[in-house]
Structures are given as structure tokens and as C-alpha cells.
Amino acid sequence: MQILPGTLDLLILKAVSLKPLHGYGVLLRIKQISGEALDIPQGSLYPALYRLEHQELITAEWAPSDNNRRAKFYTLTAAGRRRLKEETAGWNRMSAAIEAALRTTPEEV
């Protein structure tokens, strides 16, 4: 399943908020936490990461990976944490509204 437009940043922030991750790790983590349902196009992941880093929502640090190779690990900043909270709340309101709208029956109109 392709992700909805505009939700990539939210998913990245969420993935990184759980544990510092390198770029490939973010890809795997999103797949994992969405129950293998969401597929991120690899080409758009890194520009998104660079954009978020540029906006100082995440920071990066070089560290050894699981198999002891040098990798760039991303962590959430305080501003990123705030943004994640806002976006999550926004998403919840939106999905609740859409859900409510879709549940409507002819009698309720």
C-alpha cells in the first residue's frame, strides 16, 4: 500500500521517536510498525530526512551500526517531539472525522 501524500514526515518522526535509527532502519521500522502494510518509496526517504534535519526536527550522528559499519543515526529533537505530538493529534482528528463521515447511514442525514 502506498502511503498517503503528506504522511511521510509524520511516519519518519514516529519511527525515529521510538529509537535512534539510520535511514535504512527508518524504512524497515515503518514497514514493521505498520504491520508490513505501508511501503515507502526509497527515493523519497532521504530527501525527507534531509528536509527534517534542515528544519531541526531531527538531528543526525555517525555511529557504528549492528554489523559494525559506520552509519548515520537520526534522533528526534525537542522541536521534533512537539511536531510529532501536534501532527499525531491532527491526524487523529482527521481520521476520526473521516471515519465518522464514512459511517454515516441514510437515516442519519
Binding site: 532521504y46 530527501p47 534542515h54
Partner: peptide, 17 residues
């Protein structure tokens, strides 16, 4: 192929201003 190396690099540069 899946990553599209050159395009990604260009877009990353742009993302960093």
C-alpha cells in the same frame, strides 16, 4: 534502481538549501 541515486542526491541537496 529503487533508490535512484542521482535524483536522490539532487533532492537531498535541495532539501538542505
Amino acid at each position: 534502481l529503487e533508490l535512484g541515486l542521482n535524483t536522490v542526491k539532487e533532492e537531498c541537496r535541495e532539501a538542505r538549501g
